[in-house]
Nucleic acid binder design. Structure first.
Lengths: 211, 211
DNA sequence: TAGATTGTTAATCGATTAACAATC
DNA sequence: TAGATTGTTAATCGATTAACAATC
């Protein structure tokens, strides 16, 4: 369906479209025009039509877009209907928050196991999943073949573990360690999250305003 | 110092430069050329020089940049040397993780208070800060005048509270509620964080790869 | 049908890259 | 000095916006 390869700018906007359409559907809105959606999202109608037409013609002239079906289409484009196994590594504050807070299933994942090295944590349950000893990670991967690893561990551990995980078949990393993970293996996907960068930008903008 | 207004693309890269320079300094690297830094960061030398020259000429022909002083300059540009009060609202899993996990001080903030409405949580301490009853928020703001609110609460609460907080003098929002907070008051800064979007993008890229 | 709104092409704008004179 | 590398201008590339014929 995608007409050639789609730019990163477009892809970054897809989850936001998905969220807005979800809300509209929940509010009982049946149809929406690109102009109306643009106004709500702070974009231009042109941009929305361009973005959507990277994947196909989901609208209808003179009518607009059906909210529910566009919502479903974007979900399909994002691949949210899949169900890949994800293992969380590092059950510290952030790891626990992500395990409990994140709706994995609606984003195409299943939190299938959690690992840590702290004996205090091993055996406890988070979000219905028991924390296992990190030493069991290799065996687990061999048995269960998780697709994704969520790294909530320090930089050095992330670097070391990620290489091993690739060789164990992990294809994607959701990386929260304070480090830009860059794995130059063919076909490996990394999503680095830097909450600190976001806070720094807030700081910058506040500083700018005070000038 | 900024020559005119700086584009959002440049600003988004600043915290990353800051991180990389910190690491280099920690590794004892004294000087670096734009080409060398570019190679490490996966950018072009041109882009780095362009970005930095939005703020001033920090390098020296034939030499490159002094790592430590460039690190400090970027910290100054970001305004990280300031010390603004931030209140955290919502001490659920995510709120607690952020309170404990984030180094506020090195990003120009101080976590000065935490609020929640759950009686189970009120009175407990997180990161050395006691959780107060949300009913005390208004008084607190009037007394302490925090600059920033960190919202780890549901959408509806975020919408309602943010308006009140603006009238109480809060100028910046670090918003983790599943909602694009958009406050069209003059001079208010909002940084929306959507961890779910990040996970959705990971899902998309994994799906793409499997084609 | 007439009105509305899409899909798509063309125009504009901005960001990135290349090039090179200035200079340490 | 010669070599290296910046700061900055010009060229390129890509993304956004505008325009409009197609059509529901």
């Amino acid at each position: 369906m995608p007409k050639g390869s789609v730019s990163a700018s477009v892809i970054r906007r897809l989850p936001r479209y998905h969220r807005f359409l979800r809300e509209l559907a929940d509010d009982g809105v049946v149809r929406i025009s690109s102009g109306d959606l643009a106004a709500r999202m702070g974009l231009t109608a042109s941009q929305i039509r361009q973005d959507l037409n990277c994947f196909g013609g989901f609208g209808q002239q003179g009518y607009g877009y059906n909210v529910q079906s566009l919502y479903e289409e974007i979900g399909r484009i994002l691949g949210l209907g899949t169900h890949r196994r994800a293992v969380l590594i590092g059950a510290g504050n952030l790891g626990r928050a992500i395990a409990q807070h994140m709706d994995f299933v609606s984003r195409g994942f299943e939190l299938s196991a959690i690992f840590d090295l702290d004996p205090e944590l091993i055996g406890r349950q988070i979000a219905g999943v028991a924390i296992q000893n990190i030493t069991a990670l290799y065996d687990y991967c061999k048995r269960m073949n998780p697709t994704v690893a969520i790294l909530c561990i320090p930089k050095e551990a992330a670097i070391k573990l990620s290489r091993d995980l690739v060789s164990l078949g992990v294809r994607g990393f959701w990386n929260f360690s304070h480090y830009d993970l860059a794995l130059d293996y063919e076909g490996i996907v990394v999503e680095n999250v830097h909450l600190g960068d976001s806070l720094s930008i807030l700081c910058y903008r506040l500083s700018e305003m005070e000038k």
